[in-house]
Simulated assay, not measured.
Amino acid sequence: MRNMTNDEQLLRAIAMGNTEALEQLYARYWQHLFTAAYNVLKNKAVCEDIVQEAFLQLWQRRETLEIQTTLQAYLFSVIRYSVFKHIKKEQSHSQVFQHLPERLHYITPEEIVIEKNIRSQLAVIVNSLPEKCREIYLLSREEQLSHNEIASRINISPKTVENHITIALKKIRFGIARMTGIFFLLNLI
């Protein structure tokens, strides 16, 4: 069988019972899926089983499977669900929960570059805020102070603090959207 180039072709072939198409799909995604599972579970054998099971399910459901997203997103969702199912089943293994938040999301190199660019743009925008506005924003976000704590620290009213933070957030959102073309802001602010 010739090497199929896109996932849709492979899925159609798999739906018709083509095992070579399944092998191509497996070769294309198994390492990324394994890594995503391993980043959370840190157990090679369990992660290999989870990936194998994902492709087995794909094969078993091949004739009725309807994927609403991309195949890659679908496969990562299956892996994520299986990992959480495994964690729930094995709750007594406390090492699974060590550093869990850091391991929950498999980060691609592209995501790292995008986040770095957005953070850099955010710093430029924050530095361009008026002095008082910037000071209040940084006290709120970097020092995690409440509006009342900021107000008492710099001797202004909590309402003025709220107004400055609102202004800062509007300017930051607009600046990020203008620079990146993204009209929503990830949880960086």
Rank of each mutant, 00 (worst) to 15 (best):
V161L: 10
L100A: 12
V78N: 08
A21T: 07
R28V: 00
R12K: 11
F183I: 04
K170G: 12
A73G: 14
T166G: 10
S140D: 10
Y74M: 02
M16A: 12
N127V: 01
I114G: 06
L138T: 11
R103E: 09
V83H: 11
K89E: 13
F76A: 08
S152V: 01
R173A: 08
L25C: 05
A15T: 13
K85F: 03
R80P: 05
I87R: 12
L10V: 04
E66A: 07
I165K: 15
L41I: 03
F174D: 15
A13K: 08
F55G: 08
F184H: 05
I182L: 07
P109G: 03
I182S: 03
R62H: 06
N117I: 04
K85S: 02
E8I: 02
L41Q: 07
H32S: 03
V83M: 05
L41W: 01
Q31H: 01
M1Y: 01
F97S: 15
L58V: 08
S157L: 05
A54Y: 06
W30V: 02
A27T: 00
M16N: 14
F34I: 01
T64W: 02
N3D: 02
L22C: 02
I118R: 13
Y137W: 15
D7L: 00
K42A: 04
M179D: 15
E66C: 11
I67G: 07
Y38M: 02
A168V: 08
K132H: 14
E131N: 06
D7T: 02
K89N: 14
D49L: 00
S77Y: 10
A15V: 05
F97D: 14
Y74T: 07
L41A: 08
A177M: 03
Q60R: 10
Q144A: 13
L22H: 08
C133L: 04
A13T: 09
P158I: 09
V96T: 14
Y81T: 13
S152E: 13
R178S: 08
K44L: 06
F84D: 11
S146K: 08
N39K: 06
